[in-house]
């Protein structure tokens, strides 16, 4: 069976500055993949490039058996969803409007309604806050809206950039509990984290990013056996 997402020889960067060098990545249907590694080594750049927010400089990408369209809007419409770092909510819209924006490209009204209910059952807090503007939410609530908005797209692959960034430990646990529930669904997930211990129980395959390339790749068992390698990179 072919992969859902297949990236070959991808490189990209900002202006003259090359950040990603020759990245190869395969994401299987229904899998949870974690990309770990220290800050500033290209994890977010990779997600931005795959999502189409940044143009790729070289390489081939196929998604769901087809060549990837150009530009973020068309990639989103084809089911490739990015939950960006720092949430990037529509601040002057309410919680529910933000969630509904996630379903902007969809036409299946009744399925949208049931997906909205699903988001509210996963994050009951958002139901309480549904008429509040996004700008009035706490950091944890904003993260929930960001993930919920991604869920509303009913995509085939959801890429989540640092879901724990800037949150208190207790909130991080809640977010990861939700991700655990999401992982049981149909949608494949890529999650980027600095700290591998957070994703160890959720993900099934792991990529360590260093200096714009994958320095190490393995599954959950490899991860526990390679503790020392990881520590050298992450300064554990």
């Amino acid at each position: 069976m072919t992969s859902l997402l297949s990236v070959k020889g991808l490189s990209s960067g900002y202006r003259q500055q090359k950040v990603l060098h020759d990245i190869n990545l395969e994401i299987a249907h229904g899998s949870v993949t974690a990309i770990i590694g220290p800050n500033g080594h290209g994890k977010s750049t990779l997600l931005k490039t795959i999502s189409g927010l940044l143009p790729s400089w070289a390489g081939e990408t196929t998604f769901d058996g087809q060549a990837m369209p150009n530009g973020a809007p068309d990639r989103a419409r084809s089911g490739l969803i990015l939950v960006p770092q720092g949430d990037q909510l529509f601040m002057a819209m309410t919680v529910e409007e933000n969630l509904m924006m996630g379903a902007f490209a969809r036409k299946d009204t009744s399925a949208i309604k049931s997906d909205l209910d699903e988001v509210y059952s996963l994050f009951p807090r958002l139901l309480e806050r549904r008429t509040q503007r996004a700008e009035s939410l706490s950091g944890g609530e904003r993260r929930m809206v960001g993930i919920g908005r991604g869920m509303m797209a009913d995509g085939k692959l959801m890429m989540i950039d640092e879901p724990s960034l800037g949150l208190a430990p207790l909130i991080i646990e809640q977010i990861y509990a939700a991700l655990g529930v999401l992982a049981t669904g149909n949608c494949s997930i890529v999650v980027v984290e600095e700290n591998p211990s957070r994703v160890a129980n959720v993900a099934s395959s792991f990529h360590l990013m260093d200096g714009g390339t994958f320095a190490w790749t393995g599954n959950a068992a490899d991860l526990t056996n390679s503790g020392e390698i990881l520590n050298t990179y992450l300064g554990g």
């Binding site: 999502s51 927010l53 973020a72 990037q88 529509f90 601040m91 924006m101 797209a153």
Partner: peptide, 18 residues
């Protein structure tokens, strides 16, 4: 809605398929 979303956050709007 597409216009308002773009005005508030251009990149996020793109990610929603706008």
């Amino acid at each position: 809605l597409a216009i308002r979303a773009t005005a508030m956050n251009q990149n996020a709007a793109k990610l929603m398929g706008v």
